[in-house]
Each structure stands twice: as C-alpha cells, then as structure tokens.
Design a protein around this nucleic acid. Structure first.
Lengths: 362, 362
DNA sequence: AGCGATCAGGTAACCGGTTACCAGCAGGAG
DNA sequence: CTCCTGCTGGTAACCGGTTACCTGATCGCT
C-alpha cells in the first residue's frame, strides 16, 4: 500500500542525478553547492518525501543529545511543574527534551535509564522522593557510572547525594527550612497541637519536612507528641483516608494540620468537611508545594519554585552552572558532594485561623 | 577523568577474546552460546562498562520504535491525564513512550515532529484543540505524509479529521454531547439564563461545546442570547478575568454559568467569590473535563475518560483497534475518515442549585 | 598558450552495531 | 575408520548517513 520501503539518500542522489555526498551537503547547508545543483536536490527530496535517518546521522556525526527528565507520573502536579521548567530551559538552550514516566516501577525506571544511555542523552534528570536504602544507593550508583561511561550526565532532584566518587549532580528544595517556617507560622498564630499528616519513614522529602516541623516545635517549647504524627502517602486519597480514620477514632485533639503536601491537604480538607468541620474556623490547615489546587482551596502553603528546579537541573547538566563551593553549607552527607538547594517561602491564603489569646496554652 | 572515548563492541570482543558476532549474540540473548564463552563476554562487558550504541543498533536491526505524545504543556491537567493514559498503554504494549511539549509554539511543534520522524517513532500522537484554518490543515497534511513516508503513524486527539487521503487516525471526545447533557442538567434544574464562559471562535473544542450548549437551549425552548456567550481562553486566569469583567459591567443577568472547562470554572468561581457571590447559592456553575481541581471545588462537570483517550490513541496507532464502523472493511486510503469518539458523562457535585418552582421541562 | 589556483562534486572509508553465511570440530552412525 | 550432522563461533556484508580526500574542469594570470 504505502511506501514502506524507505527512501535513502542514494535514491535521492540517483533521482537528482548527483552523488550522495552532494545530497548530504545540500541538506547539511554549510558546504558551497551550485544553485542549480542544489535545486535539483531539493526537488528530488521533496518529490520523494525523503527524511534522513536520524540513527544513521547520529552514528556518523556527533550531534547534541536530548535532555530527559524521568518522573513517577506526569499527572502529579509537582512533577508536571518541574518537568515544565526542564522543558523551558532545554528549549532555551536549543535542546530537545523528553519526559519519561516510570509509574513508580523500578523495572521501568531501569529500562528507561538503559534506553536513555543507549540514546546517548545529554542529560538524565531523575526527580522525586525515594526511600534511600542500600538497594537504592546501589542502583543509583550503577546508573551514575553507566551514564557517565556513555557520556551522559545524571542529575538528581530532591534526592540526597550519592557520595564521594559518584558522578551525579544534585539539586533540591529546602524542605526542612520550609517546614520549619510554615510550622512556625502556625505556632505564632497560637496553635500548639499541630497534626503532621504525611509521615513516610525513610522517604527523604517527608523526613526533611518532619525534621523542620519538629525543630520548629522544639524551638517554641512545644513538646513533641508522636501521636500527632500520622502516616500517609503523598496523594489526595491517602490524605483523605488518613484524616477520616483519625476523625473516626475520636474528636480531634489538634487545632491545626500540617499536611505533607497540598494533595494530602486537599484530601484532608474533604474529610474534615464531610465530618462537619470547617476550615479554618474549626481546624486550620497548611500544605506544602503550592501546586495549582492550593489556590482553589485557599490553602496556606509553602511555595516551591518548581520551574526553577527544572531549569537549574538543566543548567547544571549542561555545565552552565558550577555547583557552588563544595563547602557551601551542605551539612548533608559526608564531604563535598555537589549539591544545590533552592529556597522556598510561605504563601499565606485563608486556611489558618489565629487562635484567641496568644499564650493561652489550653 | 572519565572515559570520554567510547567503548565499542570490538573492544569488548578483544577483551573477551571472542569475535564481535559472539558479543552481539550474547547481548542479544537468542542465539545459543556456550556458557563459558558467555561468561567471558559478560565479564568483559561489565569490566568495560560497555553500553551498546542505540543508533548503530537501530540502524541495522529494525526494532520497535517509541510512541510519542506531543502536547502543549504538561502542567495542564487535561494533557497530563491523557499523557498518562498513553504511557500506561504503551508500557502495557512493551513500548517506550515519550512526552514532548510545544508550549503552543508552532515552530517547536515542527521541530519535534521532524525529530520524531527522523527517530522513526512508531507513532506520533498530537493532542489538543486548535484553530482549524488553512495553514493548520496544510501543516498537518504535511506532517501526516512525512510521517507516513517515514513509517510512523499519526494520531490526532481532539482534532477534526484531515480529509480523505490523509494518513491520520483520529480519536476524540464527544464534546457536543457532553455540553448538551450538562446544559440540559442546568435547564432541568430550572435555570434559563445560562452564561457560556469560554467562547473561542474557530477553536474546535470550544466550538463543539458551544454547539451542544446551543442545541440544548433550543430544545428546551430557551432563546439563544449572544450576550450570554463570553470569550475566554481555556485557563484559570482567563476565566477569572472574564468573570471579573462581566461582574464589573453590572449585576449578573444570569443564574448559572457553563464554563468551557474546569480551569475556567475555577477562575470564575474565584471571581464570583471575590464579588461576594456564593456558589451555588447565588450562582450555579458547571465545568467540563473533570480534572482533579474539580473535585476540590465540588464542581459539577462533564467527566472525560482522559486515560481512555490516551490508551485508545496508542491502540489505534498500533493497529490493535480498527477505527470504527464506517464501512468497516474499507481498505484504507479511500473510504470514510477514520474517526473514533469516546463518550462522556456528567458528574454531579454541589455546584448547581435547583431553582424555585420547577418549571415544566416536558 | 601554459600554468597553477579555485571550485564543484564524486569516491570510498568510516560510524558501531546485526546477522547471513560459512568453517571448524566434535560426536554418532555406518 | 570414514562420513555426516549439529553445534559454535568467525568473517564480512550490510544498515544509511557524513566527510576526508581526490579529481576534473574552469578561470585568472603571466
């Protein structure tokens, strides 16, 4: 039916009555070619609907590779916004960019990374919180070496550095600082019993946020209460379910909620409403991330510069940015892992109520 | 510090003391190779950190290409959800999938399509509403032919078919039907003055929705009022701005709003609230798409099976699905344009109030 | 007219794999 | 003890471009 037999450069050359070299030159554009010859070639190309084979082309001449970002799911706004930043910066740098999703499946992640290094992608950007165990470290270290061997750069976003000799760049948000700030915001509004909703032991992002939460409580002299730290995955359903369970177990022992992220907050708000509790009149709530749903919910939250993270990752990967003085306040891992941290700030909307008399610690 | 000089299959062969063919066979997996030999090769591969060059590989052996989806922006939930569906189905079919974004830039779209056809992608899925003018038709027709010549299939989602001889498959939602249903929902709740917010003359999606809206009004004997059809892009800001302008111009002459999509509805709701109008007590509102924000807003809307659209696009592209009844056995080329339409249904939440005395709807 | 300098364009050697085809060598059959 | 057969593994011809190098023709100059 259709020309399933490929049109090659030799076909074009034959049709135009010239040699393959000439065709290649006309297409390349740089080499001087007589106008008449050029026209013949151009006409032949058009007539045959010729498309140069990218693989063959890439095989001989080295051309800039694509920039790939790998995320769990593109339907999660947090990832989508970061991907957006990557795309923008990549476009600005004249690179093509690709988004790949793993669905949280390690196997798919593996095959995507393999494919990307085979494609000689210029950079591979892995985004997203993970449980950092030995298996993970090992896997990432392998990725890093394999990608380096293939000439690609690896950038980790929102994950801890891998250690000394591992060729990977790291960017992340200041989760502890943001959590500290937003918790302090609740505290200074008079809240003392603040539920943290979104505990995920081992998960880097959640752990950092919990750390900020605890630090803020401690600073304000509020004793930590493990009963106020509730586990929940970072999605809407989990937030809803966890809050529902909590409310079903008895009347709320808290006046405010710090949700691990905005989606959790959204779910929690729904559960609160269904339980007849109003936000913020009865219960105050804050989120984290400042993704679009937060605006509709009127949620006070921590704004993350998502697109800046994406852009920074690309700039890092392309060497436009040097990862700062190695000693630049990275109390993280051991030595001078190359890490960049982006600041965050609170966005105050209407989901927090100021409690009556300030120091009235009921 | 790193081996910027590539490791080739010949290096591996030399190190393992075998021929390149053997290495290739070991890596390929199918060909029978003595265990001892295999081990030598595997060891050499590991020691050298060898990665086969995907381009060279693709050049000789034809392997399944990737499936690419091209959207405006991945930060728009509508696109993200469809992309999600594509990814899922592609993964299920054992294909790798890529998401590319154009940012609405025709130039970038062009270079992405060029790149994809050079890469011999198995399928290219273009998603999103557009203004269908001659320039557009011409551009798409060119894409279609070029992709076909390169052996890739083109699938259009949510766009009208291109015409007889053009090799492109089409899937879409039943926008007219959904708009009709949701308008009828408002009408049967007693609303007569319904503002359509989201007019975009020429834009396929909006046009279909307007058509459904008008048809429902006509069926219920409500005269069309051009003053109730307001222009707005399909995003939150546009919805907000348009509603704000409308309210600033005088007291609302409508009791209900049909927003072109959920984001427009979100913006409109914010504007209504800021203007002291409550939803649904003062003004009822419905949206379209049923993207996640709709849930938080408690918005009555039209649910689109986004992921089904993505999955269908992939199945179509891979020939798993024959495009519908139009003379089903039609050898392609001639015959009816190959179009598939997915049904939609209303999701009733709390954003519509039933007006006083139920006027006879019969 | 004779000569080298220019310039357009052709030839063929790559790029790094895959695989059709073939050769060596073992074991079993005659 | 041959001959055939089956299994392994090597050789080399592709895949479809790019480009270094070279040739033949044109042109300017003495």
């Amino acid at each position: 039916m259709t020309p399933s037999n490929r049109v090659t450069i030799r076909d074009v050359a034959k049709r135009a009555g010239v040699s393959v070299a000439t065709v290649s030159r006309v297409l390349g554009g740089e080499y001087p070619v007589l106008a008449a010859t050029r026209n013949k070639v151009v006409r032949a190309v058009r007539e045959l609907d010729y498309v140069p084979n990218a693989h063959a082309r890439a095989l001989s001449a080295a051309r800039p590779g694509a920039i790939a970002i790998v995320v769990n799911s593109v339907a999660v706004p947090y990832y989508a916004l970061i991907a957006q930043g990557v795309e923008e910066q990549a476009a600005q740098e004249g690179r093509l960019s690709l988004i790949c999703t793993t669905g949280g499946d390690t196997g798919r992640e593996l095959s995507i990374v393999r494919l990307l290094r085979e494609q000689r992608a210029e950079a591979v950007i892995l985004v997203g919180s993970v449980v950092v165990d030995d298996e993970y470290r090992e896997r990432m270290t392998e990725y890093a070496h394999a990608l380096a061997a293939a000439g690609s750069r690896l950038v980790l976003c929102g994950r801890p550095p891998l250690g000394e000799g591992v060729p990977a760049l790291v960017v992340g948000f200041d989760n502890t600082g943001g959590a500290h700030a937003v918790t302090a915001h609740l505290l200074s509004a008079g809240h003392r019993r603040i539920l943290y909703l979104g505990l995920r032991p081992g998960h880097t992002t959640s752990d950092s946020r919990v750390a900020g939460y605890r630090a803020a409580l401690a600073e304000h002299g509020v004793p930590a209460d493990p009963g106020l730290e509730v586990e929940a995955e970072f999605d809407r359903e989990a937030g809803y379910a966890a809050m529902r369970r909590r409310l079903a177990a008895g009347p709320p022992s808290f006046t405010a909620v710090f949700a691990g992220n905005d989606l959790v907050a959204a779910g929690a708000i729904q559960a609160l409403r269904e339980h007849g509790l109003r936000v913020p009149e009865d219960i105050s709530i804050v989120g984290y991330d400042d993704v679009p749903p937060a605006q509709d919910l009127g949620l006070t939250t921590v704004h993350l510069p998502h697109d800046e993270l994406g852009r920074t990752a690309v700039r890092l990967a392309l060497g436009r940015l040097t990862p700062g003085p190695p000693s630049s306040g990275a109390p993280d891992g051991a030595g001078a892992a190359r890490v960049l941290t982006l600041g965050t700030h609170i966005v105050v909307r209407g989901s927090v109520r100021r409690l009556g008399p300030p120091v009235a610690a009921r």
